[in-house]
Amino acid sequence: MLDAPRSALLNPITTPEKPVSLDKDQVRHIAMLARLHVADDDIQETADKLSRIVDFVDQLSKAPTDGVTPMAHPLNASQRLRADSVTETDERDRVQENAPLVRDGLYLVPRVIE
């Protein structure tokens, strides 16, 4: 299902005039989404630092953008398309040398229960 992005980073909960302030829960949430461990003692400091970064970037919100098409890429170009042909060969053995655990050609990971 397509849900609107709810991340605090993408939807700052302030106006440009008011500094962004991420609270501790938002930091925990973002850390969890990114699979980053942030120690409890560091959460407040991380929140302060992240808030300052968001504030810095948030200056862009002051730019007048009425009637400006949102940019999808900094290069003013369009995607080159490739022909539909198979050009890659099997490199499984070489690639799987990088994997900690393989069996019968499968990568093994700790059991994922659905």
Binding site: L101, R103, D104, L106, L108, V109, P110, R111, V112, I113
Partner: peptide, 12 residues
């Protein structure tokens, strides 16, 4: 693939 891998999940 969850079956038959001794408690691991196999990825193809």
């Amino acid at each position: 693939i969850h079956e038959g891998l001794d408690g691991f999940t196999g990825i193809d």
